[in-house]
Design a protein around this nucleic acid. Structure first.
Ligand SMILES: Nc1ncnc2c1ncn2[C@@H]1O[C@H](COP(=O)(O)OP(=O)(O)OP(=O)(O)O)[C@@H](O)[C@H]1O
Length: 743
DNA sequence: AGTCCCTTTCTTTTT
DNA sequence: GAAAGGGACT
């Protein structure tokens, strides 16, 4: 095929599969553009096609285009889609989350803001460690002021572009927070670390302070495109304004009805006031929904219409022949889970499991659902919740890697200095902390200096041994790639030895997780140009769990309603629709209630064909049983769009903000009785406990629900590896290693 | 001084 | 149902 013809075909591909309004947005040439439209109206498609159009037709270099998504998963999906339209050129786009974009900028010019060149990114956990230290140094009790509260305070400040000196402290608590904030920033600098908020605030601050940099970056991107714009915060908005100030080609896309992150600093007025802020902005509204049936649209639209402060919006579909939304009430959360799993069991005959998803308000709700799915032997993936990288032993392992890469990483030092036990307890750590504070140095550096001071003290030998261990590791792996370095470090850390000697069951699975960490390192080294340990750690600190979502694997997806944003499935189950859970019980103002409605709206608009809404009369939480009533939101759903089954208890139509009903652990015993699941087969137990096989092509394996087959291929490692198998009964399928047993 | 074990607390959502 | 914190034990 000639190059011209190929170009022509790909060029028209950028405009095909769009309606006239979408095409108008794609073709829009210069100046700011806002696409404001409801769920499933093809906003994301506009972005993808617009990028293709810019490169193909307007000959814009891919590296002059910045596209921002809300998750890494959304970014890789978009890169894939754009790749289909553009080919290899898609690789040169600046495409990622705001945080990744900010990081890329800081790696390029962070030293202008006084950042160490190899700075480390701290997660919430590291951040809390630093805050506790800072508070201890300031003599602020962590009972009086919870580190979590301070962390939120600092995060909000950074999202508002406010450094420690800029925060206003009206009440005593925020005054204390501000005090801790200052100290924390100093400690972070010494540790050579930044937090998530810094990835947004610092680039803006540096650009504003450095005219030469500003001049470079304000014209660096000819075109900027932003998805899910309704959930951007002030810092992100400011960054966009700086980066688009020369060319003014800023295209943002979003739906104010889907703004669900105000608690994280997102400001819906960014989208609502966009035309005011960017004079001459063109506004495009998409009104046709391509995703869902009329019933799903009617039900979800009815919910969000209840919001008094809502801006009305049209959304229509011609898919009028769908099934009604199915609302089902159960006695207990266990019954609810079993009912959902029952429906999935029926549906899987006609639908792949990967086209089904279960949504819930809080991560803790996943447990009963997981149990029920396991009993029914239905493969599933939980997105979010406890990430692999959040597991204690994995964090320990990573801690060693981090401390090798950044010798001043105080949070990592605190994590691993006495894991495994090496006689460096609280008192010794305090001593190091005091010394570090006096000398204005990091804790690892303080430990190094203390370990060789003349006047000896109790434990100095231990400190010296640890310091030397780390120095040795650093020297050993200096030039090694991430996988080799990782294996060496983990081996010398003593973590593996300690776990091997521990006879408990948990130790075994912890060891397994460390092995998976090694696999992840290998995976990384094989698939990235930058094979350094630092590169790996950077990647880890920014990945989210949503990356686990892989529709080619045959498994049901479980996730929170928040994580569901932007996704779509043929069938969805929205669970736990009860007062105090949806809307959540901690919410006490009308704005909060409206955000909960929007959250439910987001969850309900994910389904293409069928949607189930469920609730339970009793729900276990910690060790008490709550008596629940149906979510007051549901009364808004038109009767003709819905069928109801199961428990029809009172509460229907009750006011949205009512009292909570809770009973202490009255029927704990009875509940226990019910909680005992049907006995598992020995086979299933074997599969859950047994070693995860290597599943090499040609070997044989048995799957929980598909039976035996021959392995054709494998991607990834460990329990989360995706294995393609030709099953005797059901043919070729891609499944998770977690549900497989090697034969 | 360090470790072990028991109690308490957490759960709203996350880049 | 886990992880962190507090108190007793070595
Ligand atoms: N012009 C079109 N013709 C047919 N299908 C379309 C068209 N535009 C989009 N779609 C399909 O409609 C669905 C929703 O599109 P998309 O994800 O772009 O919507 P969205 O507005 O970003 O949704 P949300 O706000 O809910 O995330 C997708 O399955 C997409 O393939």
């Amino acid at each position: 095929m000639s190059g011209d013809l190929l170009t022509l075909m790909q060029g028209s591909a950028a405009l095909s599969g769009l309606n006239d309004t979408q095409r108008g947005a794609v073709l829009h040439s210069e100046g700011p553009l806002l696409v404001l439209a409801g769920a499933g109206s093809g906003k994301t498609r506009v972005i993808t096609h617009r990028i293709a159009h810019l490169v193909r037709e307007l000959q814009v270099a891919p590296w002059q285009i910045l596209a921002v998504t809300f998750s890494n998963k959304a970014a890789s999906e978009m890169r894939h889609r754009v790749g289909e339209l553009l080919g290899a050129q898609a690789a040169d786009l600046w495409l990622g989350t705001f945080h990744r974009t900010g990081l890329r900028m800081l790696r390029s010019f962070g030293q202008h803001g006084g950042l160490a060149s190899g700075f480390t990114i701290y997660d919430r956990d590291d951040q809390k460690k630093m805050l506790k230290r800072a508070m201890a140094a300031l003599n602020i009790s962590d009972q009086r002021l919870k580190p979590k509260v301070v962390a939120n305070f600092i995060d909000r400040a950074k999202n508002q572009l406010k450094g420690p000196d800029a925060v206003t402290s009206r009440d005593p608590t925020s005054a204390l927070c501000a005090q801790v904030y200052s100290r924390y920033e100093a400690d972070m600098k010494i540790a050579g670390a930044v937090d998530f908020g810094d990835l947004l605030m610092r680039p803006v601050q540096i650009l504003q302070a450095e005219p030469t940099l500003m001049q470079m970056w304000s014209g660096r991107f000819k075109y900027i495109l932003v998805d899910e714009f309704q959930d951007t915060n002030h810092a992100q908005m400011q960054l966009l304004q700086l980066l688009s100030s020369e060319h003014r080609n800023l295209c943002v896309v979003g739906d104010d009805d889907q703004s669900i992150y105000s608690w994280r600093g997102a400001d819906v007025s960014n989208i609502l006031d966009f035309p005011k802020r960017f004079e001459g902005a063109r506004v495009v509204k998409l009104e046709r929904n391509y995703r869902s049936t009329a019933q799903i649209l009617a039900a979800s639209g009815a919910i969000v219409s209840q919001n008094a402060s809502r801006h009305a919006k049209t959304l229509w579909t011609d898919q009028k022949d769908g099934s009604p939304v199915h609302l089902h009430g159960s006695n207990t959360d266990l019954d609810e889970a079993r009912w959902v799993v029952g429906r999935i069991g029926e549906a899987r005959v006609a639908e792949p499991l990967s086209e089904m998803a279960i949504f819930y308000r809080t991560n803790s709700q996943s447990r009963v659902l997981e149990d029920a799915l396991r009993s029914a032997r239905i493969p599933y993936v939980v997105i979010g919740g406890l990430r692999f990288y959040d597991r204690a032993e994995v964090k320990d392992g990573l801690g060693y890697l981090k401390l090798v890469v950044n010798p001043d990483d105080t949070a990592a030092w605190l994590r691993v200095v006495n894991t495994p036990r090496r006689g460096i307890g609280k008192k010794l750590v305090e001593r190091v902390a005091d010394f570090a504070a006096i000398k204005q140095i990091s804790m690892p550096e303080a430990a190094r200096q203390l370990s060789v001071v003349k006047e000896s003290f109790r434990g100095q030998k231990h400190l010296k041994a640890f310091t030397e261990l780390m120095a040795q590791m650093r020297a050993d792996v200096a030039t090694k790639s991430a996988d080799t370095a990782g294996v060496m470090i983990l081996r010398h850390s003593g973590l593996i030895d300690a776990l091997s000697q521990d006879p408990s069951i948990e130790a075994e699975s912890r060891l397994d997780n460390l092995n998976q960490l090694v696999s992840a390192l290998t995976d990384y080294t094989e698939n990235h140009a930058d094979t350094s340990l630092g590169g790996y750690l950077e990647q880890v600190s920014l990945v989210t769990d949503i990356d686990k979502l892989d529709k080619t694997v045959d498994a049901v997806s479980l996730m929170t309603m928040h994580a569901a944003k932007g996704l779509e499935f043929n069938q969805t189950f929205v669970c736990g629709l009860e007062r105090n859970l949806m809307p959540h019980g901690n919410i006490d103002d009308e704005a909060g209630i409206e955000e909960e409605r929007r959250l439910l709206y987001v969850a309900m608009t994910r389904a293409r064909k069928r949607m189930y809404l469920t609730y339970a009369r009793r729900r276990q939480r910690f060790n008490e049983v709550l008596t629940q009533t149906i979510s007051p939101f549901l009364a808004a759903i038109p009767r003709d769009a819905m069928v109801r089954t199961g428990q029809q208890h009172q509460g229907w139509g009750a006011p949205v903000r009512g009292p909570s009903s809770r009973k202490q652990a009255w029927a704990r015993a009875a509940q226990k009785e019910q909680k005992t699941n049907p006995p598992r087969t020995s086979e299933e137990v074997a599969i859950q406990r047994g070693p995860v096989g290597p599943f090499l092509p040609g070997s044989r394996a048995r799957h929980v629900s598909f039976g035996e087959g021959e392995v054709l291929a494998r991607e990834g490692h460990g329990k989360l590896a995706r294995v393609t198998i030709r099953f005797h009964r059901v043919g070729v399928k891609k499944v998770l290693a977690r549900f497989l047993q090697a034969l």
